[in-house]
Write a protein that binds this DNA or RNA. Structure first.
Lengths: 259, 259
DNA sequence: AGCGCGAATTTCGCATGGTGGAATTGTGCG
DNA sequence: CGCACAATTCCACCATGCGAAATTCGCGCT
């Protein structure tokens, strides 16, 4: 499924930086201003530590503090976010809107960033029960539709090397946990023209995905939703549009770079 | 002018965090992937230090590394940026587009974040020579159109307190450097219905701005461009649209919060 | 207005986490 | 293949980040 658990970043690195971003993510997840104690608690830090980091982030413009003394994300992040957005995500915006309209489900665009699937754009379904995978989230490829779609374009050796690094963690009874199962699915994907994730990450969730050809960084578009709504009929209808969408986002003859 | 120099953040705070964001801003400013040595040089850090910070940022998803080993901003920032965007910036997007169309110059939306003007949305002019102020940038209020527009709505005591904290640095011969001059300009702004920045930050640059009423965090919209194009005629035409725009973004009767 | 309480902010000694020069490894080119 | 340059890793050292304790602030209640 497209919302396979995020791989935990390797421990190590600069702790202060990780902690600062943990605070930013806590504020982002809250979708409303938070008191210091709440941010600190959410991020799992002692209050003075959180305070000091938030003070730094505030001074830099990435956090703001309201008169209520609550903290919220600052405008500096807007600028960074806009400039982090690949050209492909820009081009894909109307395409994703149309996919959502046709299928009535959440439309996603993802790329392969190292060994992880990284979601770079999304148009959420208008249904109340819907798949929600935040832009910027990263997941393991083997249990996600877009991941399998992209891997289906890679040489077998490269798939094996990737899997050797990531492993094949099981999320549900249908998750692929052997290389052979995965490679078989990728072969099926190529034959069919699209990948299916049928509850491999999360029971009751279904996703169909098609790789976007012609980019040196693999990319894929998908439609994901609850199995009860993603019937075979819906899949059949949506797949044509999905394939058309992928083709429309195809890279140029010069194997267009994603940046 | 709307592109008054950014106030340097107070020194201190968590150095590692500042450095990490310096690297992100270096990548953002480059608008293309950069080699490690180049990022490090731009950010003014030794290569191994930059490497370590970038590694951390990469592991967290805020930086990605291409096969060429170059670094670029990562998709994690997209998500943060989107969630940092205030509701007002969303609402203002079509308004700014229309302002740019009418005036043919760069349209901006800014708020007062503490003592600084913070740009939260922008539609750049289509002219090749145009004002470019990145979303997320912060400037001192006294030398910017939007800053003066917002201050014109504040009680005098509050303006005096703000200026006591920020000072009134001179950027050009027309910059206000005394409180009395500034207060006079704010009075003129109120009388006129809009603020003018006539080369106060940058010679040859002109900006007109109107405060958006009814928000507990001060906000303002502006049009800025080169003086040679921002004639009195253009100003006269654009001001009506600017005032209409500000009114359209007016906060509700409950003094709508910006978050 | 005064008080109490909880939250936010500041302080500062300490130790750990961050640093960066040197060494090692990797990559691309001739 | 060899070389030069770039990237990455290593690790001793100490500067910076940490967080418990102290202080200050802000709010609500009487």
């Amino acid at each position: 499924m497209d919302s396979a658990p995020e791989r935990v970043p390797a421990s190590g690195g600069v702790q202060s930086v990780s902690r600062a971003f943990g605070l930013l993510e806590a504020l982002a997840d809250a979708h409303e201003p938070l008191a210091l104690a709440d941010v600190a608690a959410t991020a799992g830090l002692p209050v003075p530590t959180a305070h000091r980091l938030l003070r730094t982030l505030h001074d830099l413009g990435y956090v703001r503090q309201l008169e209520s003394r609550e903290y919220a994300l600052g405008a500096g992040l807007i600028g960074l976010g806009e400039r982090a957005r690949p050209a492909l995500a820009e081009r894909a915006a109307p395409v994703l809107v149309r996919l959502e309209e046709v299928a009535g489900e959440t439309a996603n665009l993802a790329t392969l960033d190292g060994d992880l699937v990284s979601y770079i754009a999304q148009v959420p379904s208008r249904h109340r029960m819907r798949m929600f995978t935040e832009v910027g989230r990263r997941v393991l490829p083997h249990a996600s539709g877009v991941g399998k779609a992209m891997m289906s374009l890679l040489p077998e050796g490269r798939v094996r090397a990737l899997v050797a690094r990531t492993g094949l963690p099981r999320y549900t009874a249908t998750t692929h946990t052997t290389v052979d199962d995965l490679l078989q699915d990728l072969a099926d994907t190529r034959r069919r023209g699209f990948a299916i994730d049928d509850g491999e990450q999360e029971v009751g969730v279904r996703c169909i995905a098609v790789a976007v050809p012609g980019h040196n960084v693999p990319a894929a578009v998908s439609i994901s939703g609850p199995s009860v709504r993603m019937t075979d009929e819906v899949v059949r209808t949506a797949v044509a549009e999905l394939i058309r969408a992928a083709k429309g986002l195809q890279g140029g003859l010069r194997t267009q770079a994603i940046p």
